[in-house]
Protein backbone atom coordinates (compact mmCIF):
# COMPACT_ATOMS: atom_id res chain seq x y z
CA UNK A 1 0.00 0.00 0.00
CA UNK A 2 2.60 2.51 1.14
CA UNK A 3 4.65 3.68 -1.78
CA UNK A 4 7.89 5.61 -1.71
CA UNK A 5 9.20 8.41 -3.79
CA UNK A 6 12.27 6.92 -5.52
CA UNK A 7 14.48 9.99 -5.37
CA UNK A 8 13.69 10.90 -1.81
CA UNK A 9 14.11 7.29 -0.87
CA UNK A 10 17.61 7.44 -2.30
CA UNK A 11 18.44 10.37 -0.05
CA UNK A 12 17.04 8.61 3.00
CA UNK A 13 18.90 5.42 2.17
CA UNK A 14 22.07 7.37 1.75
CA UNK A 15 21.65 9.01 5.12
CA UNK A 16 20.86 5.64 6.65
CA UNK A 17 24.34 4.50 5.61
CA UNK A 18 25.86 6.73 8.25
CA UNK A 19 22.95 7.26 10.63
CA UNK A 20 21.88 4.10 12.27
CA UNK A 21 18.19 4.16 13.11
CA UNK A 22 16.73 7.64 13.34
CA UNK A 23 14.82 7.27 10.14
CA UNK A 24 12.11 9.61 11.38
CA UNK A 25 14.69 12.33 12.02
CA UNK A 26 16.05 11.92 8.54
CA UNK A 27 12.54 11.94 7.10
CA UNK A 28 11.56 15.06 8.95
CA UNK A 29 14.77 16.78 7.92
CA UNK A 30 14.09 15.94 4.31
CA UNK A 31 10.50 17.13 4.73
CA UNK A 32 11.77 20.48 6.01
CA UNK A 33 14.31 20.67 3.22
CA UNK A 34 11.68 19.92 0.58
CA UNK A 35 9.19 22.35 2.09
CA UNK A 36 11.84 25.05 2.04
CA UNK A 37 11.82 25.31 5.80
CA UNK A 38 14.25 25.02 8.66
CA UNK A 39 14.64 22.66 11.54
CA UNK A 40 15.25 23.22 15.20
CA UNK A 41 16.81 20.23 16.86
CA UNK A 42 16.60 20.18 20.56
CA UNK A 43 18.97 17.67 22.01
CA UNK A 44 22.00 17.00 24.08
CA UNK A 45 25.37 16.98 22.35
CA UNK A 46 26.77 13.83 20.86
CA UNK A 47 23.68 12.17 19.51
CA UNK A 48 24.59 12.73 15.87
CA UNK A 49 23.13 16.07 14.96
CA UNK A 50 26.12 17.15 12.97
CA UNK A 51 26.39 13.79 11.37
CA UNK A 52 22.80 14.01 10.34
CA UNK A 53 23.18 17.38 8.67
CA UNK A 54 26.43 16.52 7.01
CA UNK A 55 25.00 13.33 5.60
CA UNK A 56 22.07 15.25 4.27
CA UNK A 57 24.28 17.87 2.73
CA UNK A 58 26.51 15.29 1.16
CA UNK A 59 23.59 13.32 -0.22
CA UNK A 60 22.31 16.27 -2.17
CA UNK A 61 25.75 17.52 -3.17
CA UNK A 62 25.20 20.78 -1.34
CA UNK A 63 27.71 22.96 0.39
CA UNK A 64 27.71 22.44 4.10
CA UNK A 65 28.57 25.13 6.65
CA UNK A 66 28.69 24.98 10.36
CA UNK A 67 28.40 27.84 12.76
CA UNK A 68 29.28 27.18 16.35
CA UNK A 69 27.45 29.87 18.28
CA UNK A 70 29.31 31.34 21.21
CA UNK A 71 28.44 34.36 23.35
CA UNK A 72 31.11 36.47 21.65
CA UNK A 73 30.07 35.70 18.10
CA UNK A 74 29.20 38.80 16.08
CA UNK A 75 26.55 39.12 13.36
CA UNK A 76 29.26 39.68 10.81
CA UNK A 77 30.80 36.37 11.77
CA UNK A 78 27.62 34.83 10.46
CA UNK A 79 26.79 36.94 7.49
CA UNK A 80 30.25 37.80 6.27
CA UNK A 81 32.15 41.08 6.18
CA UNK A 82 33.61 43.57 3.66
CA UNK A 83 37.33 43.90 4.01
CA UNK A 84 39.38 46.67 2.50
CA UNK A 85 41.65 45.34 -0.18
CA UNK A 86 44.63 47.68 -0.25
CA UNK A 87 45.78 46.37 -3.60
CA UNK A 88 42.53 46.91 -5.35
CA UNK A 89 41.77 49.96 -3.21
CA UNK A 90 38.22 48.83 -2.49
CA UNK A 91 36.14 46.85 -0.07
CA UNK A 92 35.83 43.23 -0.93
CA UNK A 93 32.97 41.13 0.54
CA UNK A 94 34.02 38.00 2.26
CA UNK A 95 30.94 35.78 2.64
CA UNK A 96 30.17 34.36 6.10
CA UNK A 97 29.08 30.81 6.83
CA UNK A 98 25.47 31.66 6.09
CA UNK A 99 26.28 31.71 2.42
CA UNK A 100 25.95 27.95 2.05
CA UNK A 101 23.20 25.53 1.17
CA UNK A 102 22.99 23.63 4.34
CA UNK A 103 23.94 25.19 7.58
CA UNK A 104 24.27 23.70 10.99
CA UNK A 105 23.74 26.41 13.57
CA UNK A 106 25.03 24.71 16.66
CA UNK A 107 23.80 25.81 20.08
CA UNK A 108 22.00 28.77 18.71
CA UNK A 109 20.82 29.84 22.14
CA UNK A 110 24.38 30.49 23.32
CA UNK A 111 24.87 33.63 21.30
CA UNK A 112 23.50 37.11 21.72
CA UNK A 113 20.10 38.00 20.29
CA UNK A 114 21.78 40.32 17.85
CA UNK A 115 23.71 37.51 16.27
CA UNK A 116 20.71 35.19 16.43
CA UNK A 117 18.61 37.69 14.51
CA UNK A 118 21.25 37.90 11.80
CA UNK A 119 20.75 34.22 11.17
CA UNK A 120 17.02 34.36 11.55
CA UNK A 121 16.68 37.15 9.05
CA UNK A 122 18.54 35.06 6.56
CA UNK A 123 16.27 32.14 7.28
CA UNK A 124 13.13 34.14 6.80
CA UNK A 125 14.04 36.38 3.92
CA UNK A 126 16.48 34.08 2.15
CA UNK A 127 18.69 37.15 1.95
CA UNK A 128 21.11 39.04 4.16
CA UNK A 129 21.84 42.75 4.25
CA UNK A 130 25.46 43.67 4.79
CA UNK A 131 26.72 47.26 4.62
CA UNK A 132 23.51 48.30 3.00
CA UNK A 133 23.75 45.68 0.29
CA UNK A 134 21.13 42.95 0.24
CA UNK A 135 22.54 39.69 -0.89
CA UNK A 136 20.30 36.80 -1.90
CA UNK A 137 21.17 33.44 -0.49
CA UNK A 138 21.68 30.52 -2.73
CA UNK A 139 18.85 27.99 -3.02
CA UNK A 140 18.35 25.54 -1.49
CA UNK A 141 18.94 27.17 1.83
CA UNK A 142 18.41 24.98 4.78
CA UNK A 143 19.25 25.71 8.41
CA UNK A 144 19.34 23.11 11.06
CA UNK A 145 19.73 24.84 14.40
CA UNK A 146 20.39 22.97 17.60
CA UNK A 147 19.58 23.82 21.16
CA UNK A 148 20.88 22.19 24.26
CA UNK A 149 17.97 21.71 26.60
CA UNK A 150 20.15 20.82 29.58
CA UNK A 151 22.25 23.88 30.28
CA UNK A 152 20.40 27.11 30.57
CA UNK A 153 23.05 29.16 32.28
CA UNK A 154 24.35 31.97 30.16
CA UNK A 155 21.98 31.27 27.32
CA UNK A 156 19.70 33.52 25.36
CA UNK A 157 16.56 31.49 24.77
CA UNK A 158 15.00 32.15 21.41
CA UNK A 159 11.92 34.31 21.64
CA UNK A 160 8.64 32.81 20.45
CA UNK A 161 8.60 35.03 17.39
CA UNK A 162 11.90 33.59 16.34
CA UNK A 163 10.91 30.04 17.03
CA UNK A 164 8.03 30.51 14.63
CA UNK A 165 10.57 30.73 11.81
CA UNK A 166 11.52 27.11 12.15
CA UNK A 167 9.24 24.84 10.19
CA UNK A 168 9.56 22.09 12.71
CA UNK A 169 11.21 21.28 15.94
CA UNK A 170 12.26 17.79 16.85
CA UNK A 171 14.32 15.76 19.19
CA UNK A 172 16.98 13.35 18.12
CA UNK A 173 16.87 10.99 21.03
CA UNK A 174 19.34 8.34 21.95
CA UNK A 175 19.76 5.27 19.79
CA UNK A 176 18.58 2.04 21.31
CA UNK A 177 21.04 -0.56 22.48
CA UNK A 178 21.40 -2.55 19.25
CA UNK A 179 21.67 0.63 17.24
CA UNK A 180 24.32 1.96 19.53
CA UNK A 181 26.27 -1.30 19.21
CA UNK A 182 26.29 -0.84 15.48
CA UNK A 183 27.36 2.78 15.89
CA UNK A 184 30.37 1.54 17.86
CA UNK A 185 31.05 -1.12 15.29
CA UNK A 186 31.24 1.39 12.51
CA UNK A 187 33.17 3.98 14.49
CA UNK A 188 36.00 1.48 14.86
CA UNK A 189 36.95 1.95 11.22
CA UNK A 190 36.95 4.93 8.91
CA UNK A 191 34.15 7.33 9.60
CA UNK A 192 31.73 6.36 6.81
CA UNK A 193 30.69 9.95 6.26
CA UNK A 194 33.84 10.52 4.31
CA UNK A 195 32.85 7.95 1.75
CA UNK A 196 29.33 9.28 1.32
CA UNK A 197 28.51 10.44 -2.17
CA UNK A 198 25.72 12.61 -3.42
CA UNK A 199 22.72 10.79 -4.79
CA UNK A 200 20.87 13.69 -6.35
CA UNK A 201 21.97 16.98 -7.67
CA UNK A 202 20.95 20.35 -6.33
CA UNK A 203 19.00 20.87 -9.52
CA UNK A 204 17.03 17.72 -8.88
CA UNK A 205 16.38 18.90 -5.35
CA UNK A 206 14.98 22.16 -6.64
CA UNK A 207 12.73 20.18 -8.96
CA UNK A 208 11.59 18.13 -5.99
CA UNK A 209 10.80 21.32 -4.12
CA UNK A 210 8.67 22.39 -7.05
CA UNK A 211 7.01 18.99 -7.05
CA UNK A 212 6.05 19.45 -3.41
CA UNK A 213 4.08 22.53 -4.30
CA UNK A 214 2.09 20.47 -6.76
CA UNK A 215 0.92 17.98 -4.14
CA UNK A 216 -2.86 18.25 -3.81
CA UNK A 217 -4.20 19.58 -0.53
CA UNK A 218 -7.92 19.07 -0.58
CA UNK A 219 -10.37 21.49 0.95
CA UNK A 220 -11.26 18.86 3.55
CA UNK A 221 -7.62 18.71 4.61
CA UNK A 222 -7.26 22.47 4.71
CA UNK A 223 -10.36 22.62 6.87
CA UNK A 224 -8.83 19.99 9.10
CA UNK A 225 -5.60 21.97 9.45
CA UNK A 226 -7.53 25.12 10.27
CA UNK A 227 -9.58 23.20 12.80
CA UNK A 228 -6.45 21.90 14.50
CA UNK A 229 -4.86 25.34 14.57
CA UNK A 230 -7.97 26.98 15.96
CA UNK A 231 -8.24 24.34 18.64
CA UNK A 232 -4.74 25.22 19.80
CA UNK A 233 -5.98 28.77 20.22
CA UNK A 234 -8.96 27.69 22.31
CA UNK A 235 -7.35 25.02 24.43
CA UNK A 236 -7.58 25.70 28.13
CA UNK A 237 -3.92 24.90 28.79
CA UNK A 238 -2.57 27.05 25.98
CA UNK A 239 -1.77 30.70 26.49
CA UNK A 240 -0.89 31.41 22.88
CA UNK A 241 -2.04 29.18 20.06
CA UNK A 242 -0.52 28.42 16.69
CA UNK A 243 -0.34 31.32 14.26
CA UNK A 244 -1.61 31.21 10.68
CA UNK A 245 2.05 30.82 9.78
CA UNK A 246 1.85 27.62 11.76
CA UNK A 247 -1.08 26.46 9.63
CA UNK A 248 0.83 27.24 6.47
CA UNK A 249 3.83 25.37 7.84
CA UNK A 250 1.66 22.38 8.61
CA UNK A 251 0.22 22.37 5.12
CA UNK A 252 3.60 22.70 3.42
CA UNK A 253 5.15 20.04 5.58
CA UNK A 254 2.14 17.85 4.86
CA UNK A 255 2.72 18.24 1.15
CA UNK A 256 6.38 17.36 1.51
CA UNK A 257 5.59 14.39 3.69
CA UNK A 258 2.97 13.15 1.22
CA UNK A 259 5.52 13.37 -1.55
CA UNK A 260 8.02 11.54 0.59
CA UNK A 261 5.42 8.81 0.96
CA UNK A 262 5.03 8.76 -2.82
CA UNK A 263 1.58 10.31 -2.84
CA UNK A 264 0.34 13.29 -4.78
CA UNK A 265 -2.27 14.25 -2.20
CA UNK A 266 -2.21 14.87 1.52
CA UNK A 267 -3.95 12.58 3.96
CA UNK A 268 -5.15 13.39 7.46
CA UNK A 269 -2.60 10.83 8.57
CA UNK A 270 0.20 13.09 7.32
CA UNK A 271 -1.21 16.02 9.19
CA UNK A 272 -1.65 14.03 12.36
CA UNK A 273 1.91 12.78 12.20
CA UNK A 274 3.41 16.19 11.60
CA UNK A 275 1.25 18.33 13.86
CA UNK A 276 3.25 17.88 17.09
CA UNK A 277 6.54 18.70 15.33
CA UNK A 278 5.10 21.80 13.76
CA UNK A 279 2.85 23.20 16.44
CA UNK A 280 4.67 22.36 19.63
CA UNK A 281 7.22 25.19 19.44
CA UNK A 282 4.65 27.70 18.23
CA UNK A 283 2.41 27.57 21.29
CA UNK A 284 2.95 28.92 24.76
CA UNK A 285 1.58 26.88 27.58
CA UNK A 286 -0.10 28.26 30.65
CA UNK A 287 1.71 27.54 33.90
CA UNK A 288 -1.04 25.05 34.88
CA UNK A 289 -0.04 22.72 32.07
CA UNK A 290 3.55 22.74 33.21
CA UNK A 291 2.49 21.95 36.75
CA UNK A 292 0.51 19.03 35.44
CA UNK A 293 3.63 17.78 33.72
CA UNK A 294 2.23 18.21 30.24
CA UNK A 295 4.59 19.23 27.49
CA UNK A 296 3.53 21.19 24.42
CA UNK A 297 3.88 18.01 22.35
CA UNK A 298 1.52 16.17 24.69
CA UNK A 299 -1.09 18.84 24.37
CA UNK A 300 -0.87 18.99 20.60
CA UNK A 301 -1.24 15.23 20.51
CA UNK A 302 -4.29 15.44 22.75
CA UNK A 303 -5.78 18.01 20.42
CA UNK A 304 -5.08 15.78 17.45
CA UNK A 305 -6.81 12.80 19.01
CA UNK A 306 -9.82 14.89 19.96
CA UNK A 307 -10.32 16.66 16.64
CA UNK A 308 -12.68 14.82 14.31
CA UNK A 309 -10.97 13.60 11.17
CA UNK A 310 -12.86 14.57 8.04
CA UNK A 311 -14.20 11.37 6.52
CA UNK A 312 -16.61 12.81 4.00
CA UNK A 313 -16.40 15.39 1.29
CA UNK A 314 -17.25 18.92 2.27
CA UNK A 315 -20.75 19.64 1.12
CA UNK A 316 -19.90 22.69 -0.97
CA UNK A 317 -17.30 20.72 -2.86
CA UNK A 318 -19.69 18.26 -4.38
Amino acid sequence: MEQKHPKIERILDNIAKVMIGKRHVAELSVVALLADGHVLLEDVPGVGKTMMVRALAKSIGASFRRIQFTPDLLPSDVTGVSIYNAKEQEFVFRPGPIMGNIILADEINRTSPKTQSALLEGMEEASVTIDGVTRLLEKPFFVMATQNPVEYEGTYPLPEAQLDRFLLKMKMGYPDASEEMEVLERAQYIPPIVELESVISLEELRLLQEEVKEVHVDGTIKRYIVELASRTREHKHIFLGASPRGSIALMKAGQAYALLKGRDFVLPDDIQYLAPYIFAHRIILKPEAKYEGLSAEDIVEIIVTKTPVPVQRLVNQE
Binding site: L267, D269, Q272, T305, K306, T307, V309
Partner: peptide, 9 residues
Protein backbone atom coordinates in the same frame (compact mmCIF):
# COMPACT_ATOMS: atom_id res chain seq x y z
CA UNK B 1 -13.78 4.67 15.46
CA UNK B 2 -12.67 7.47 17.78
CA UNK B 3 -13.38 10.71 15.98
CA UNK B 4 -9.72 11.62 16.04
CA UNK B 5 -8.70 8.41 14.28
CA UNK B 6 -7.89 8.53 10.62
CA UNK B 7 -9.58 6.19 8.19
CA UNK B 8 -6.31 4.47 7.44
CA UNK B 9 -5.65 3.57 11.06
Amino acid sequence: RPEGQTLRE
